[in-house]
């Protein structure tokens, strides 16, 4: 088993997810079975192979440096649960 319960909790923290005991148990089992499956890749020697991040030979795409109107503020704020004085409101940070 690669993913212990402790490791699952650590990964959940990194992913900003809270798992209950049942989920932790279930995920530990399922993720381990998926990881065991993907370990098939270890059969392959990939030394010296260039990683393929992206299939198209496109790099650094820029648009013309011309100002364009953005979306109206009210529309952007319309989907937020809490808004105050034209800004997103969040709970206390410090």
């Amino acid at each position: 088993m690669v993913l212990t319960k402790q490791k699952i909790e650590h990964v959940a923290m990194l992913a900003r997810l809270k798992l209950d005991d049942e989920e932790t148990e279930l995920f530990s089992e399922q993720l381990n079975s998926i990881l065991a499956y993907v370990e098939k890749l270890d059969d392959l020697n990939t030394e010296g192979i260039e990683p393929l991040v992206h299939v198209l030979p496109i790099n650094n795409v820029f648009r013309d440096d011309v100002a364009r109107p953005g979306m109206p503020r009210e529309e952007l704020l319309a989907n937020a649960t809490m808004v105050e004085e034209g800004q997103f409101k969040v709970p206390r940070i410090v």
């Binding site: 993913l3 990964v11 798992l19 989920e23 995920f27 990939t46 990683p51 393929l52």
Partner: peptide, 30 residues
């Protein structure tokens, strides 16, 4: 969705990135 986020976070996390994610990108090339 949680399962896949967990899996993705794990394969990108420190110490596992090369073994899983980078390896997968190389196989993708093959």
């Amino acid at each position: 969705v949680k399962r896949r986020i967990m899996l993705g976070t794990y394969v990108l996390s420190a110490g596992y990135f090369d073994a899983y994610y980078l390896k997968a990108l190389k196989v993708r090339r093959l």
